[in-house]
Every structure is written in C-alpha cells, then in structure tokens.
Simulated scan of single mutants.
Amino acid sequence: MSVRLLCDTARVMAAARHVEPNRARRRAWFVEDPIAELGFRTAEDLVEAGETSRLIAMIASIRAHERGS
C-alpha cells in the first residue's frame, strides 16, 4: 500500500471515528459497505480512486446532522 493510501485511509478512519466509535464496525464499513450517494462504492474504493476529500465531506455532513447516518 502506498504512503498516500495509508495516509488517506487514516484520515477517513479518524473522521469516521466521530460517527462510529467502534473500531471493528468502522473497519467493516470501510471495506464492505457501498455508499449510495457516492456511486455505490465502498470507502476503500473511494480512497483508492483518490476521492478521499469527497468521502470526508460526506462524513462531515453526517456529523453536522445535514444527512442521515
């Protein structure tokens, strides 16, 4: 895994920690759950595609109660 992917994964997981405090559930979400509003791709797919900023913005909107969790 490249340094960029590691850093971006860490950023996403840190942001998601505020929405899902359980590390195991957060990890499962990252690799398994397709996100409808981001093209039914997983968080892992989005990070690999270089779309970390979009993903973190979505997580921020959840934290701000601008959308459902």
Score class of each variant (00 low, 15 high):
residue 25 R to M: 13
residue 53 S to Y: 06
residue 60 A to Q: 09
residue 48 E to V: 12
residue 48 E to H: 14
residue 26 R to P: 00
residue 42 T to V: 03
residue 64 A to S: 13
residue 31 V to F: 07
residue 6 L to S: 14
residue 49 A to R: 14
residue 10 A to E: 12
residue 51 E to L: 15
residue 56 I to Q: 02
residue 40 F to W: 08
residue 28 A to R: 10
residue 66 E to T: 03
residue 23 R to G: 05
residue 45 D to N: 13
residue 69 S to T: 14
residue 60 A to L: 01
residue 31 V to Y: 08
residue 15 A to R: 04
residue 40 F to N: 13
residue 43 A to W: 03
residue 13 M to G: 04
residue 29 W to Q: 05
residue 58 M to K: 07
residue 49 A to T: 09
residue 27 R to G: 05
residue 15 A to P: 00
residue 24 A to K: 08
residue 1 M to N: 11
residue 42 T to R: 05
residue 12 V to W: 11
residue 8 D to Q: 14
residue 39 G to Q: 01
residue 61 S to W: 01
residue 11 R to M: 13
residue 10 A to P: 05
residue 47 V to P: 05
residue 23 R to E: 15
residue 19 V to T: 06
residue 59 I to N: 00
residue 57 A to E: 11
residue 45 D to K: 07
residue 41 R to V: 02
residue 4 R to V: 13
residue 29 W to I: 07
residue 54 R to F: 12
residue 55 L to T: 07
residue 68 G to K: 10
residue 22 N to P: 05
residue 4 R to S: 13
residue 68 G to V: 11
residue 22 N to W: 08
residue 17 R to A: 13
residue 44 E to H: 11
residue 24 A to N: 07
residue 49 A to M: 14
residue 38 L to G: 04
residue 27 R to S: 12
residue 41 R to Q: 11
residue 17 R to F: 06
residue 22 N to A: 08
residue 55 L to S: 09
residue 8 D to R: 10
residue 25 R to C: 09
residue 27 R to F: 15
residue 26 R to Q: 10
residue 14 A to M: 04
residue 50 G to P: 08
residue 21 P to R: 11
residue 50 G to Q: 09
residue 15 A to S: 07
residue 32 E to L: 10
residue 14 A to S: 07
residue 31 V to T: 09
residue 2 S to R: 12
residue 18 H to Y: 11
residue 12 V to S: 05
residue 53 S to M: 08
residue 22 N to D: 15
residue 10 A to R: 10
residue 66 E to H: 08
residue 9 T to M: 06
residue 49 A to K: 14
residue 36 A to P: 00
residue 29 W to D: 04
residue 64 A to G: 06
residue 5 L to S: 12
residue 39 G to L: 02
residue 32 E to Q: 12
residue 27 R to H: 15
residue 33 D to I: 06
residue 46 L to S: 09
residue 40 F to K: 09
residue 17 R to S: 11
residue 26 R to N: 05
residue 51 E to M: 13
residue 19 V to W: 01
residue 52 T to C: 06
residue 36 A to T: 02
residue 34 P to S: 13
residue 5 L to P: 11
residue 61 S to D: 07
residue 43 A to G: 08
residue 36 A to R: 11
residue 7 C to H: 14
residue 20 E to Q: 12
residue 22 N to S: 10
residue 6 L to F: 07
residue 47 V to D: 04
residue 15 A to M: 03
residue 66 E to K: 14
residue 42 T to D: 01
residue 52 T to V: 04
residue 35 I to T: 01
residue 38 L to M: 07
residue 2 S to H: 12
residue 61 S to I: 00
residue 59 I to K: 00
residue 40 F to T: 03
residue 23 R to P: 04
residue 48 E to N: 13
residue 17 R to N: 07
residue 23 R to A: 15
residue 32 E to T: 11
residue 39 G to V: 01
residue 14 A to H: 06
residue 4 R to E: 13
residue 36 A to Y: 02
residue 7 C to T: 14
residue 13 M to F: 09
residue 26 R to I: 10
residue 45 D to M: 07
residue 3 V to C: 09
residue 25 R to E: 15
residue 42 T to L: 02
residue 21 P to G: 12
residue 39 G to R: 00
residue 68 G to L: 12
residue 54 R to T: 08
residue 57 A to W: 02
residue 32 E to Y: 08
residue 32 E to M: 08
residue 26 R to L: 13
residue 58 M to E: 00
residue 61 S to G: 01
residue 1 M to G: 15
residue 45 D to Y: 03
residue 26 R to K: 09
